[in-house]
Amino acid sequence: MLIRSSIGYGAHMGAKIALFAAPRYVNTLVRSYKVLAIETSCDDSCVAILEHNKEGNKTKVLAQLKETLDSQKEGGIIPTRAHLHHQQKIAPLVQRALRETSSQGEIDLVCVTRGPGMPGSLSGGLDVAKGLAVAWNKPLVGVHHMLGHLLVPRMQSNGRAPQFPFVSLLVSGGHTLVVLSRSLNEHEILCDTIDIAIGDSLDKCARELGIRGNMIAKSMEAFINENLDDARSKEIFMILPKPLRNQNGRMNVQKFSFSPFLTAVKQSLAKDIALYTDREKRSMAFQVQESLFDHLITKLKLVIAMRPDIFSQVKHMVCSGGVGANKRLQQMLQTEFRNSFDEIYFPELSLCTDNAVMIGWAGIELYETLGLTTNLDVSPIKKWPLTEMLEVPGWICE
């Protein structure tokens, strides 16, 4: 049986979509359905299968798989290697997820990251997703990567999910943004970075301090936490910057800047890093991490102070992205903003870093709330502002 439901409806306006209140058909006989989700925006090949119950708006993760490219020897991600990695890994991961959940022939919706990200990486996942949508004759939803990070806390089923309007601090290796979300498709960037992202800065500073690993910032956090007494000792005192403050010490620039920290770390090293003791390196790493997080918090406080019209209405904050998994950052945010928000949400560790669950959930919200699917002729989008999420070709409105 089909019934009418008055929710968002899309209509093409050139390359844009305008949303109107118009009827959409919903099959009331379907209480739950399965979603296959794929994420390949960078160096992680990710696949997930979700089961979404429409009646209770509850979503169960049936499978969550990931294969990460090992780039330790290269000291960074090489796009051609990442592309090859996805070509080799994504199809077997899909096959494994389907087998482990006995979901072959039961998928009702395919969701995949369309952008932003590295085109070669994105194409690896997008091509597989389009092929599956064709083979299964199922709808496809091409998801904005950052929307996934922003919305994933709303997948919670305990009634404590963030409600619109809410603000998000999105912190990763490629992005550092403060985003106001008034609705699913209405986002405003309140603060971004003028140079590099905080995760990129953490990685580069950690590398200068001799720290190695596939996820270098995470390795630095673990190195610091091995001995917090040594870390806090200030065995070597470092002079680290406070970016974007004017000469009078005021902080009236609503932007982040993280590249000065790398310069400061290089200038602080008086000898080859191999000649420093672990105690000395741990002390330097702690100071670097604290200074970067302090800059992040200082600018977020400024944004709140400069926009009382917004924050008087905002009760919830989300911190997501790979850097959002850092326990020290979570602690600092909870301490500094406990009086600014009723609730601060941190996705569980596996959902902070790039993952397919967040892509599946964002796809569900786009599909159910706005009635959106994606045309099969779309291509990856390297740069895709979150504020222009619907202003790209390829959207289909049911």
Score class of each variant (00 low, 15 high):
Ile273Thr: 13
Ser268Glu: 14
Cys397Thr: 14
Ile78Asp: 08
Ala356Trp: 05
Gly371Val: 11
Arg4Tyr: 15
Lys255Ser: 04
Ile239Asp: 15
Pro380Gln: 03
Arg212Cys: 02
Leu122Thr: 06
Asn248Arg: 06
Gly371His: 06
Met118Gln: 04
Arg245Ser: 01
Val171Cys: 10
Gly117Glu: 03
Ser257Arg: 00
Leu372Trp: 04
Cys205Ser: 12
Val314Tyr: 09
Thr353Asn: 10
Ala285Met: 11
Glu368Thr: 04
Glu348Val: 12
Lys242Phe: 02
Cys42Thr: 10
Ser157Pro: 09
Ala133Leu: 09
Gln289Ser: 05
Leu302Lys: 08
Val128Asn: 09
Gln87Pro: 00
Leu302Ile: 09
Leu177Trp: 09
Pro162Tyr: 07
Asp230Phe: 13
Ile194Val: 14
Ile194Lys: 06
Glu100Thr: 11
Thr353Val: 10
Ile189Leu: 10
Ser71His: 15
Asp127Val: 10
Gln254Ala: 10
Leu372Cys: 05
Ala18Lys: 14
Cys42Leu: 08
Val167Phe: 09
Asp230Cys: 09
Asp108Met: 10
Leu351Glu: 05
Ala91Tyr: 12
Ser6Glu: 13
Val143Trp: 08
Gly75Cys: 07
His175Gln: 10
Ala197Pro: 02
Asp229Ile: 12
Met118Glu: 09
Cys319Val: 15
Val110Ser: 02
Leu329Gln: 04
Met1Trp: 04
Ile211Pro: 00
Pro162Arg: 10
Arg328Lys: 14
Gln267Cys: 08
Arg279Phe: 05
Met155Lys: 08
